[in-house]
């Protein structure tokens, strides 16, 4: 009896699910500003979000606004951030214990740094309720996408608002483009796509900067495509399209997509096809299984990665990849 029991215990131990330990793959730390009070946030492209790395704030002199933050370290672990604040114009505002105090009229950028991550707040301080507190640029009501074909034009709207969010009539605006070779903007806010690429457009009135609209221009505007090729003696067939939508990157595999199923087959965005580099530096979109055709990623831009890679994650083996074009 004792011998049998020992044998069963040994067999059980042999076949237990064990534990492996390793270092987590470091990523870029993320510092996000959370919306609250008069503070609204946008992501890098200007798309409004509940939390983002860019804040827009308008206050009256003497008003205060507490800023709530969320920080994920380089291993993706949420931590209470220790923030270093920098104020472009210290006469306009001050910050103590994450609380911004409006000191005098003007505009200033407030920078935040924590653990290698950065964020910023655009602050406008007004002296009275009729001054411009914010400038808001919007797309035409019938348009929801900032993707354009070459030579396509779009008339933007702009409004100046007071501290209470009411429109102020009779103001003049200046328009700015980050790269006029890609997207040009006229003095009336008419944008025209000129060449493949991305460019940001914003407006200003009386020194108050608007929200930013980021435009994508391409052969198929806002969409990149690729055809998979097999790698390393493994099998991957099909194609992929990648597009931005609703502030997210949507990765769609074709209906005929097939790949080797192994000990964990994952889809990655990467700038290399080398399995080890993909695993360490690529963006893991999730595990693929036959029939799954769509993956999403937030906080990623359309042109940030060059390849969609099919990776056996446990072994770091590339089964196939698609180079994204244009």
């Amino acid at each position: 009896m004792k011998t049998k029991l020992t044998a069963f215990v040994l067999l059980g131990c042999f076949s237990c699910i064990g534990v492996d330990r390793k270092d987590a793959i470091p990523r870029d730390p993320v510092l996000s500003i959370l919306s609250g009070g008069k503070l609204t946030t946008t992501d890098k492209s200007g798309v409004p979000m509940e939390k983002g790395n860019m804040g827009i704030l308008a206050l009256q002199v003497g008003e205060k606004q507490t800023v709530s933050l969320e920080f994920f370290n380089k291993f993706g672990v949420r931590e209470t951030p220790t923030v270093v604040w920098t104020i472009e114009k210290p006469t306009v505002a001050s910050v103590i214990n994450n609380e911004i105090t409006a000191l005098s009229s003007g505009n200033t950028q407030i920078g935040l740094t924590s653990g290698g991550a950065t964020a910023s707040i655009g602050l406008t301080v007004v002296g009275d309720a009729n001054a411009i507190a914010s400038v808001v640029v919007t797309l035409p009501p019938s348009i929801s996408s900032t993707t354009l074909q070459i030579n396509q034009s779009l008339q933007l709207s702009v409004a100046a608002k007071n501290i209470n969010g009411q429109n102020i009539a009779g103001k003049t605006f200046e328009w700015f483009t980050e790269n006029s070779a890609i997207v040009a903007v006229s003095s009336t806010g008419l944008v025209t796509a000129k060449a493949d690429g991305t460019a940001e457009v914003h407006a200003k009135s009386e020194g108050v900067k608007s929200n930013i609209l980021k435009f994508n221009v391409g052969a198929v505007a806002g969409v990149r495509t690729g055809t998979f090729q097999s790698a390393g003696g493994y099998s991957t067939v099909g194609s992929v399209t990648v597009e931005e939508s609703g502030g997210k990157l949507i990765v769609k595999l074709s209906s005929n997509f097939q790949a080797s199923v192994a000990l964990g087959t994952f889809i990655y965005l990467a700038n290399s096809t080398s399995g080890g580099i993909v695993k360490s530096a690529g963006l893991d979109l999730g595990q693929w299984s036959p029939g799954k055709t769509q993956f999403e990623a937030a906080g990623v831009t359309l042109n940030q990665y060059k390849f969609v890679v099919v990776l056996c994650k446990p072994a770091g083996l590339t089964f196939g990849f698609a180079e994204l074009k244009p």
């Binding site: 076949s15 237990c16 699910i17 064990g18 534990v19 492996d20 330990r21 390793k22 270092d23 987590a24 291993f75 993706g76 672990v77 949420r78 931590e79 000990l263």
Partner: peptide, 15 residues
């Protein structure tokens, strides 16, 4: 027959 995949724990706290 039994096939297993080990649990993977990370050295960094909180991961």
């Amino acid at each position: 027959a039994r096939a297993t995949k080990n649990e993977l724990q990370y050295n960094q706290p909180g991961v």
